[in-house]
């Protein structure tokens, strides 16, 4: 559940608009100033496809893999963000996440990739057991980004009073406003729901990340260098 499946129409415009600006500025910097040889771009294209295809692997608990952590570890902080943006755009056209929240989703998943990259390359660098290294990087990153996701939702909807303005001219205006004045987003409850439903998924995804890295180290270790 760390990936925000927030549909369109929940957040105010300034909020998702700001996320779009941040993402486009970051992407513009990557595309303009970072070296992006064709080989790297072919890899980015293939990895985006890998993330999309991996989502079709059905897990029995209704959780789907997203591989943002693996993208961060294997592709690094620039290419992984590019890949995540592409994946989110593909998914948005299927109503999986919204068109207006592509920016927000890209920020959350990019943070997931960047945190995992930082943990894997710098914090657990001395750990020789690659499974544990991968597992911990993925797990910590997934937990942290779930909290960040909840924070983002809270930042976007804690002030539900903006909804009042959109009800002007409505026949039930007074009734609705009366109720909405009392509406309040409870972030603790939301977090609790995220943890309750996401925790099994975090363990599965982290195990698969660690296991996949272990497999790569056995079969083709040069990929991890």
């Amino acid at each position: 559940m760390n990936h925000l499946h927030i549909p369109d129409g929940v957040f105010p415009i300034w909020f998702w608009g700001l996320a779009y600006v941040i993402v486009f500025v970051y992407l513009a910097i990557i595309l303009k100033f970072c070296k992006t040889p064709t080989k790297k771009m072919a890899l980015a294209g293939m990895f985006s496809a890998l993330m999309l295809v991996a989502m079709s692997i059905e897990l029995p608990i209704g959780y789907h893999l997203n591989f943002a952590v693996l993208a961060g570890i294997l592709l690094g902080p620039t290419l992984s963000v590019l890949v995540i943006f592409v994946v989110n755009t593909f998914l948005a056209f299927l109503g999986h996440g919204g068109i207006t929240v592509i920016g927000l989703n890209t920020i959350v998943l990019s943070l997931e990739a960047l945190i995992a990259f930082g943990l894997y390359r710098f914090i657990f660098v001395k750990n020789k057991n690659i499974f544990i290294k991968g597992f911990l990087s993925a797990f910590i990153s997934l937990v942290l980004t779930s909290f960040i996701s909840a924070g983002i939702v809270y930042a976007g909807v804690h002030d539900l009073s903006y909804m009042h303005h959109s009800h002007h001219g409505h026949k039930h205006e007074h009734n609705l406003e009366h109720h909405e004045q009392e509406m309040e987003f409870d972030i603790k409850k939301f977090l609790l729901l995220l943890i309750a439903t996401g925790s099994i998924g975090w363990v599965i995804e982290s195990s698969l990340t660690g296991g996949a890295l272990q497999y790569i180290k056995k079969v083709k270790p040069e990929i991890l260098d």
Partner: peptide, 9 residues
């Protein structure tokens, strides 16, 4: 997660 959720909303 919303306290006093209104049906309209």
């Amino acid at each position: 997660s919303i306290k006093n959720l209104s049906f309209g909303y």
